[in-house]
Structures are given as structure tokens and as C-alpha cells.
Design a binder for these strands. Structure first.
Lengths: 154, 154
DNA sequence: GGCACTGCTGGGCAGAATGCCCAGCGAAGA
DNA sequence: TCTTCGCTGGGCATTCTGCCCAGCAGTGCC
């Protein structure tokens, strides 16, 4: 899928996103055109989805994160999805194995505010039951580099 | 925390990360220096953590995602954290309310491979019990823009 | 009222990077 | 042997960046 040069390029971009193609080619010891071609390929293959800004919810005033497991009434999946998608505090939603189960990531302004968010999330007809786990620590923040290294060494 | 201009800037960058400061200032109808100052502030405040590449694990050959809830033996937290951090397929790890509970996001090359990953994850002394939920669909991929809009309209 | 401070404007400048082009070359496969 | 592919190393005009400046409006303080 990706080779070592791709891997090194992604790592380099992850460490110093500000550097341009030219600087990257210098660091990697290859020609500029090569870096450009690799980048184009990685993006068109979908390996690199983009370079959007990584926004910290805590810095926006939402320091509380929680995960909620939802049990859904049969046949209500579509409605529930639309409902959850409309709630800004729902950052992520997955449907998982086990019928009617969904897992979503929530943020809130405070523990008290989390109650409001949960009420907004579960106050919907198709949702039968919800259990919430509040995040206390985040020892491993969302990361991808170790996986990239692994993948590039095949 | 952030005002409307900040919000619009973040949205713009999220939609078209490739544009530079100059083009952004044109789109937003403000001076280039203003955009530059706002960007600097957002980054130094930590609202924008960076512009690293967003890598898709599926495109790397890891199309299977799962969430695992782990129950940890008292006092083993530190060791478990270090162990999980050393596994590339662990993309994220949180400690949550409820003593000894952790939640982690895993990826694997296939459902069969997921077994290998889970064995690697839970095959560690401090972990008492683990329950895994395989992700089938991802109706709401990790997002932040709705929250940014919300936050910028205060 | 007078004053300082802050943030935005609009402009200028040299230096650097980008997007795009090309010919040459070595490795791999037909 | 021939063709294809990816990488190299270079050139080119255009564009953007980082950095500077003076002017000006709004705000809060004395």
C-alpha cells in the first residue's frame, strides 16, 4: 500500500506540517518532483484525506469528553442517526455489533453541561437506553504515526 | 473564546486546507495581516493544534475498527497504559469513570486480524476483562465544524 | 475632554516556494 | 532487446510568505 518513502513523508508532515514540498524533499533526500508525485498519489488514493486544522474542543470551551453507548429501537436507526448528526456536541458516531447499538463521542462545557448534552442526545424517540462513560484521562490521544510506520514496513 | 471571524476562518480552512493566508483573507473580506494575526492567536491559544495530514487507516490496509472496554487491575494503570501505547493498532486510549475502566479504539486488517490485535492488547497482566464492539458503520465521522460554529456564535 | 492601547487596514519589499515544463537515466517487465 | 515507469536535476514565470510601515477607528482610563 505505502512504502518507506511514503511513510517517512507522512511522518515528516505530521511532525512539521508547516514545511512545504521543497523543504520536505530536502529532508528526505529526494527530488522535489518525487515528493510532489508521492503527495499527489497519497491524496488521490485517499491515504491522506487532507490537511485540515486540528481543533481542540477543550480550547473551544468544551473540556469534557464522554462516550455514550445507545440502544436503538428496531428500525429507528436512520432517524436516530439524523438526530445525532444534528447535535454539534456529537463529534463522532459509530454503529457497532450487537443489534441496535451505537457508540458516540460527546463533548460538553462542564460536567453539569454534560447532562444537558446527554438529555439532548437521548431525548429522542428511537433511543431505548443509554449508558455514558466520562473520560477522565487521555493517555493516548488519537494517533496514526505508529500505524503508518507499521504499514510502511511491509 | 473565539468570535465569528475565527469561526469562519476555521471553517474555511477545514473546507479548503490548501488555500494560503492571502487567499483566505480575500475570501473572508479582511486584510491579510488580520488573518495572519488570527491564525497566530488560534494556534498559540491551542484552538488549532496544527495542520497535520489526516490519514485514513482503511487506505493503509486497516479497514476494521473496533472499540474495546478494558477492566484494569487496581494499581496497574500505568503499566497498562504503557503497554497499550506500544501497540500501533491502538489509535486512542481513554480512561473513563468507573474504577479501572479504559476505552480504546483499535484497527485491524480484517476481522480475523482483529483477533490478533485483541490478543495483543488484552494479553497483558494488568487487564482483567475486555469487551469489544466492532464498528459496522460510521454515520458521523469525527467532526468539529458544527461545534466551532456553535462556539463562535456566543 | 485628552490620552494610550488595541486591532484592523492597505500598502511595499525582498526572498522563497509553487506549479509546470523538460531531457536524461536506471530498473523492471514484456 | 525494447518499452514503461519512477526518479533526478534543472529552468521558468508567477505567486505567496514573512516582515515592515503609517493611518485610523473603537475602547477604556485618567
Amino acid at each position: 500500500m505505502i512504502d518507506r518513502l511514503d511513510g517517512r513523508l507522512i511522518e515528516l508532515l505530521a511532525e512539521e506540517p508547516r514545511i512545504g514540498v521543497l523543504e520536505a524533499s530536502r529532508r528526505l533526500g529526494v527530488a522535489r518532483g518525487t515528493v510532489q508525485a508521492r503527495l499527489d498519489r497519497l491524496q488521490s488514493q485517499g491515504v491522506i484525506r487532507g490537511f485540515g486544522p486540528q481543533v481542540d474542543p477543550a480550547a473551544l470551551g468544551y473540556p469534557v469528553t464522554a462516550f455514550a453507548t445507545l440502544e436503538i429501537k428496531q428500525g429507528q436507526g436512520t432517524d436516530v442517526r439524523a438526530h445525532l448528526a444534528s447535535v454539534p456536541e456529537v463529534l463522532e458516531l459509530h454503529t457497532t455489533t450487537g443489534q441496535g447499538d451505537m457508540l458516540c463521542r460527546l463533548v460538553a462545557r462542564s460536567n453539569a453541561d454534560l447532562q444537558r448534552v446527554i438529555d439532548k442526545v437521548v431525548g429522542f424517540d428511537g433511543i431505548v437506553r443509554a449508558s455514558t462513560a466520562i473520560v477522565m484521562e487521555n493517555p493516548v490521544p488519537l494517533r496514526i504515526i505508529p500505524l503508518v510506520k507499521q504499514a510502511s514496513e511491509d
